[in-house]
């Protein structure tokens, strides 16, 4: 008997916390994030109703059919009901997943726009590095033998390749607002995961693979990037930031980087 009230109490508290959004997503900063939230909400709504009704029913039968000396009904079931709830569940579940396929396809099956800014993302235990192609628009040659983290060369850029000499390497991801960005995710040791909550995007970085990820941030600001695939003892410290700059700020920043590289490479 008390069990019924506990079950109901939990159901109410859980529904309340989700409705009141006591803990919630940060506001989205891209179109995908907006669609994501809509889909999350509709899933929450449908499943929330099912959840609530199921717990309610459980509590109800506990109270209603406790032993008060009545005779239990002798019934082996009801085929009509079985068919009914089987098909209802099937329609609902499959419907949800088909509806969500649109959201997923929008991220992974679209073609990246031609004008997308290209950035390489490199994960290693336990740091992020980002590489921009620089003024020539080309990523230069790399060689793992040249990797030198302390010397600021986590990618192993090969300076004998002119295309590599102007590549910009940073430890934070800076992008201009409102511009499509095409990331290429790579890891050089173990699996890591690139996650920006505000973008509602998450993707593993797998050694031996180059995995594309396209997004466009529509709101300036600084957003944290927590590594989200266990990569070792520093996993929880593997942090970087996504800095969404105005077009002007981004241009100036890029220019400064190019300038700095030039000076460094003066004999």
């Amino acid at each position: 008997m008390p069990l019924a009230f506990i079950v109901w109490a939990f159901a109410i508290v859980i529904v309340y916390v989700f409705l009141a959004r006591l803990w919630w997503f940060p506001p989205p900063i891209n179109q995908h994030g907006i669609i994501y939230d809509q889909h999350f909400l509709s899933t929450l709504l449908v499943t929330g109703v099912i959840f609530f009704l199921a717990q309610l029913a459980l509590g109800y039968v506990i109270v209603r059919y406790r032993d008060r000396g009545q005779r239990a009904v002798y019934s082996h079931g009801n085929n009509k009901l079985e068919v009914l709830w089987t098909s209802a569940a099937a329609v609902l579940f499959i419907g949800a997943v088909l509806a969500s396929t649109r959201v997923y396809a929008g991220v992974h099956l679209g073609r990246p726009p031609e004008n997308a800014l290209r950035v390489e993302v490199l994960g290693k235990q336990f740091a992020w590095s980002f590489r921009y192609p620089g003024p020539d628009g080309k990523f230069g040659r790399t060689d793992i033998k040249l990797i030198n983290d302390a010397g600021g060369n986590p990618f192993g850029l090969d300076d004998t390749d002119p295309a590599a000499r102007d590549d910009i390497v940073t430890s934070a991801l800076r992008v201009p607002v409102g511009t499509p960005v095409r990331l290429t995710l790579k890891s050089r040791d173990v699996i890591h995961n690139f996650f920006v909550r505000e973008l509602r995007l998450k993707q593993d970085l797998v050694p031996g693979m180059e995995i594309p990820l396209v997004f466009q941030a529509d709101k300036t600001g600084v957003y944290e990037i927590p590594c989200s695939e266990l990569c070792g003892l520093g996993h929880h410290q593997m942090r970087s930031t996504l800095e969404v700059l105005t077009a002007e700020e981004f241009r100036r920043w890029e220019q400064a980087q190019v300038e700095q590289l030039r000076q460094l490479q003066q004999p």
Binding site: T47, I50, F51, Q55, T101, V103, Y104, K202, S228
Partner: peptide, 24 residues
Amino acid sequence: SLFVTGGISGIFLGQPALDLYLHD
């Protein structure tokens, strides 16, 4: 009760779209 609660969150995770954020 637990099976219902745990099953419901599975409906979120089973959708790749929502897993794009919820995974891990």
